[in-house]
Write a protein that binds this DNA or RNA. Structure first.
Length: 276
DNA sequence: ATTTGAATAT
DNA sequence: GATATTCAAA
């Protein structure tokens, strides 16, 4: 047991979403009632303003919280119940968190509930993840088929970056290589719990507030009540030691592109647990 | 009883 | 096509 134990966490921490990134996400997931309760409307939308206004539109272009026009049951005192949330839009950032979570959990333990917990995105429901996971699996399966059919892919690119113009979302996120193996013998390291900071357990702080306090979340590593891990086969020790956290500074290596059709994509494998 | 996963619906 | 919802099975 050495620093490597938490190395993945450190690495992960580096790419943790900045408040700016989470802000829009959380806003999306705010329920109308919540929005009203907090006296926040679309007017106070906090949008990320870069020094250089990029041509591509914001990734988070979702309906505002107050976009509800069909609240059939209006006028009741506590409509907090039976209220439909807006459709969740899986932005590349959100999807990346999803992929990261799945990668860390391993295909075996990558079930909706666990993924949801690992993602720790306020407002995200298990069903949201389940639905997305279903589609993601189909994506992986399709990729496997192509990969095994004719491997000659000319370009010696990463691995999972298919040239399919479809699956825009999935293509914007690096897919861990071992995902493509149909091997369920996942043998990642132990499965420490997650930095569960603001789950939807307490309805006190809502999205916006949660995101604000999201700043520094120190997780408490614990063992899940399910001591049911397959024998750690020790695939390979991660050889990407995170430098001693001295001054992480601004770490921003996110690639989000919606309309790219040419190659030359620089994929960043977060977890080289299967790097060749 | 809860959760998953696939089908099905919006 | 993307996400939600339903539903049988684990």
């Amino acid at each position: 047991m050495r620093e490597e134990d938490s190395n993945w966490f450190s690495k992960w921490e580096e790419e943790l979403p900045s408040p700016d990134e989470l802000m829009p996400l959380s806003q999306t997931l705010i329920t109308p009632d919540l929005a009203v309760a907090f006296d926040i409307s679309s007017s106070n939308a906090v949008i990320d303003n870069n020094s250089h206004p990029p041509p591509p539109p914001p990734v988070v272009a979702q309906p505002s919280s107050a976009d509800f026009g069909d609240c059939g049951d209006l006028g009741s005192g506590e409509p907090a119940r039976t209220l439909k949330r807006p459709r969740l839009v899986w932005t590349p950032q959100l999807h990346k968190r999803f992929v990261d979570a799945v990668a860390h959990l391993g295909i075996k333990n990558a079930v909706p509930k666990t993924i949801m917990q690992l993602m720790s995105v306020d407002g995200l429901t298990r069903e949201n993840v389940a639905s997305h996971l279903q589609k993601y699996r189909l994506y992986l399966k399709r990729m496997q088929g192509i990969s095994s059919g004719s491997g000659g892919s000319g370009g010696a690119n990463g691995a999972a970056t298919s040239d399919l113009a479809t699956d825009h979302l999935f293509a914007s996120s690096p897919v861990p290589p071992h995902f493509l193996h149909s091997s369920r013998t996942n043998s990642d390291h132990f499965l420490p719990f997650v930095p569960v900071g603001a789950l939807q357990q307490h309805h006190h702080m809502a999205a916006a507030a949660a995101a604000a306090q999201y700043h520094r979340q120190v997780a408490q590593f614990g063992s899940p009540p399910n001591g049911q891990f397959e024998r750690p086969f020790l695939a390979r020790p991660i050889h990407r030691l995170g430098a001693p956290v001295s001054n992480p500074a601004t770490n921003h290596i996110e690639d989000l592109d919606s309309g790219n059709a040419t190659e030359g994509r620089k994929v960043l494998t977060l977890f080289p647990t299967g790097n060749d």
